[in-house]
Amino acid sequence: MTPSAVSSSSCFKTFSTSMRTLADETVEAQHVSERSDVIIEADENFRAFIDSGEPIIVDFYADWCGPCKQLGPLLEKHTLKHNGAFKLIKVNVDNQPQIAEAFRVQDIPHVLFIMDKQLVDQFKGAIPADHVEKTLENFANVARNRAANQSGQSNEEQPPQVDADSPEYLISIAGQLMAKGELEEASKVYSQVVEKAVDKEMPDYAAKGLAGLLTISIAQYKMDAAKSIISRLNKDHGELIKTDKEIVAAISLYECYKEAGEQVVKAIHEGKTINEIQGNKERVLYLYLTGQQKEALEAGIALLKKSDTKNEGRTALVHILNCLENQEANKKLVSDTRKRMASLLF
């Protein structure tokens, strides 16, 4: 899967160039709506597609979205090409906002790959056509192998296996392990992603693998390891640190832990309560880092209102907002909090 770390401008140019080759295939696209393996508009039966456990690809799009208009025909073309290996379900986020919200879709196009009721892969934004083709091919192969195993076919009759050494495939496996909470196994796979990506000169995937390792290090409170990974990202992937939302979010979270200090990190790791935390700023950051987002913001605002704790409140809130602003769903919350801060500081 092509990482979102690829800059949108260069990615869009590559994608547009590749799409020119589809000009002579418009007739094929016109017949998409006649095929049962392409559902043009999801309806109230959407949940039934998920519950069936069958392989499906969900394309979240909007009529006004330029990249969506280019990606859609490409997805439809390769769905037809794989002839029933999976279904393509197209969800218009304007017409079906409840479905988009349920899957936390914030940016479009956003494509999910689901099998056996599990999210196995995804990509967002303008993606180069060759990567779209490769990803759908991998998914189709996995789907066919699944069907063959269920029907009891012999190994000779099964389609070729997915390239288990490809960074694209490994990154999806690591994501699945992360979702299951199997951090140690996910860490091993992310390390393989970095190794394979470096060997194959695929820097975007190397950065994606490092971002995964960074997230795991933070989750395991291994701050020295996290610091080392950030140093490597700075050295080898400096531009992506500014553009890749996942990397930016992970680094912001690391900075939040760093500001909170060893006392808070240790307290969270050992399951201690806020009453055992020393320091006003530290208590605010403890609240945020333990998932109490609104409480943390209100506690920070309360510190701002007092002259003797104003600096601590400002420092804590700045770090929290740096984490939150990387999430589309929190834009209004971040904006409102910044306005409240400004009214108290100036």
Rank of each mutant, 00 (worst) to 15 (best):
D51H: 08
H31D: 09
N83V: 07
S166I: 12
V264S: 01
K13F: 10
A329P: 10
E295Y: 06
N92C: 08
M202H: 05
K200S: 11
A102E: 14
H82N: 06
Q293T: 15
Y221K: 15
S343T: 10
E25W: 00
K200L: 15
Q220H: 08
E239D: 15
F12H: 08
D163W: 09
E276M: 10
E312M: 09
A147H: 02
T135Y: 00
L233G: 02
E276L: 11
Q327W: 08
K117A: 08
A186R: 04
S36E: 14
M19S: 09
N83W: 11
P128R: 01
G238P: 11
G291W: 05
T315G: 00
A148Y: 05
R20L: 13
Y61V: 07
R283W: 02
F113S: 04
S8F: 15
K90E: 00
T17L: 04
L324N: 03
F123Q: 00
A48C: 09
I251G: 01
R35P: 11
K258P: 05
A299P: 00
S231H: 07
L112E: 07
K306F: 08
Q122E: 14
G72Y: 05
Y286C: 06
K272V: 07
T215C: 06
S343I: 10
K281L: 14
L333K: 05
F123S: 01
T273E: 09
N138Q: 09
I56V: 14
R20G: 04
C323W: 03
Q98L: 11
I274T: 05
K77H: 12
E44R: 10
Q153T: 12
M341C: 05
S33R: 07
L136S: 01
L321E: 00
G72I: 07
E184G: 12
L177V: 06
Q176I: 14
